[in-house]
Design a protein around this nucleic acid. Sequence first.
RNA 1: UGGCCUAUGGUGUAAUUGGCAACACUACUGAUUUUGGUUCAGUCAUUCUAGGUUCGAGUCCUAGUAGGCCAACCA
Length: 560
Amino acid sequence: MSESNKPLNFIAQIIQQELAEGRCTQVVTRFPPEPNGYLHIGHAKSICLNFGLAESFGGRCNLRFDDTNPAKEEKEYVEAIKRDVEWLGYTWDQECYASDYFQQLYDWAVELIKKGKAYVDSQSSEEMASQKGTPTQAGTDSPHRTRSVEENLRLFEDMKNGKYKEGEHVLRAKIDMASPNMLMRDPVMYRILHRAHHRTNTDWCIYPLYDWTHGESDYLEQVSHSLCTLEFLPHRELYDWFLDQLVSKDRLRPKQREFARRNLSHTLVSKRKLLQLVEQKVVDGWDDPRMPTISGMRRRGYPPKAIKNFADAIGIAKRDNVVDLSLLEFHVREQLNKTAPRVMAVLSPLKVVITNYQEGKEEWLEAENNPEDESAGFRKVPFSRELYIEEDDFREEANRKFFRLKLGGEVRLKNGYIIKAESCTKDSKGNVLEVQCTYDPKSKSGSGTEESLRKVKGTLHWVSIPHAFEAEVRLYDRLFSDPTPDAHKDRDFMEFINPDSLQKITAFLEPGLKEAKVGEQFQFQRMGYFNVDTDSTPGNPIFNRTVGLRDTWAKLDQKE
RNA sequence: UGGCCUAUGGUGUAAUUGGCAACACUACUGAUUUUGGUUCAGUCAUUCUAGGUUCGAGUCCUAGUAGGCCAACCA
């Protein structure tokens, strides 16, 4: 691969070293989502990391659903997650479910009880919390901590057999109520939950908790490197303690490694807050193109390769970070620039009449589909006496920096002729309604004449009015105006919602676009990249702005 | 206040493990351009602070400072 000489991130370095030292012979990773919601850009990073690492070391990566909480999980999410991972272009080795290990986990728990390493506690969660102590103060032992093995076994079995109500008992690991690590103060391993599970239905009424599931699942799947975000770092001690109780020396012992979660500017990723946006109809649903969900980015038109390259570019480390959205947008443009056919679309029309162009005449001009890709070929676009150009592309008068059309000035119509603005008509408020131009018949693009080779500073896109095709275009912008909308202590993230994050307009497009199919992507020249939204119907495409083009003029203009 | 983690341009990561601080994005110049796009060339750093070790420190030592994480029968 061309990336072989790229410096390794710290996790890849660890893997390389452990491979060399023989701790493991093959790299096995896993992507372990809980099926309780939709995947977002943060998950995408984790997917790229886990699958990417396995790929580059010739190993494999499992997709594992961490489904130990039936109160929150649904099959619908399992399907959505699989769709998103596939869309990113990854193929998992095994499709696993923590729920497949419930029996094994139960058996191991019984063993722990027999070894005196776990006990049934019968206090309320409030009582247990009050005994937990604080980070600076040791906890106190539960009165049930000294129950006999026999009593614990009987109670645990009765828990499993549904003899108790929720909250009556829990199974706890017997570790150390004075540990400086709060997680080691006799953590709960099982709770009673009389709930149907999306896969095991009512087979179980006790469910294992995260800590008593994750490492064990890793062990059962013989995962060599269990990667997670930094907030799980304190869990590592417990992860190892549980494994200590059950690993056999001849099998691979998984290791947990932590990396810092990536924060993307101008967005947030908290499930609760995203849900709020959906419920309060700030957005159109979980796959709204403004959402940071994978399904939202897909609908927005972000290519999977762009997301992968982005994930790769931001790297991996252990410090707090906020990655600028513009880096993601750069990778989106980088992909689309190579692949998206160029077309002409006028988003905000201004009528131009070419007074010396014969009335009723039409010409079909040759237009290049993609200057970045010769194999993309050419197409024909209709030209006539009456055209639309972009409102912003005309000013009655302007300084030298304005390369576009102004009275007495010349400009080239892309793929067409050089025109000169002679006059304009305005309404009573002074708004320009129409621009009258003359054209140079000899300046036709590609004709090879001296006039056609003449340089004019500006080139405008345009659409022939009689041929134009009207379509709905949705102009999306960032959802939040603040780089870190949910990092303000005294201000709610809802205050930072960008009121202009969506603008629906009717645009005028070259006629060929009428046949555009859902998912197809285009560059509207000088405007941005657009894709056909899933709301479209045949013959009535709706276009989403995926991302604008870099616009140095907009910046220049703003400074004035 | 206990334990743990972290600190390198505006942003995100590198630095052959003690040897000229590099890459990408952003921003700004300029060139090219029938997209103010693309492409090309260039500009932007007292490596958190203060001491110390060393011929030599982003890297090692000491003391600070700042930020983050940890007390769910969530994951």
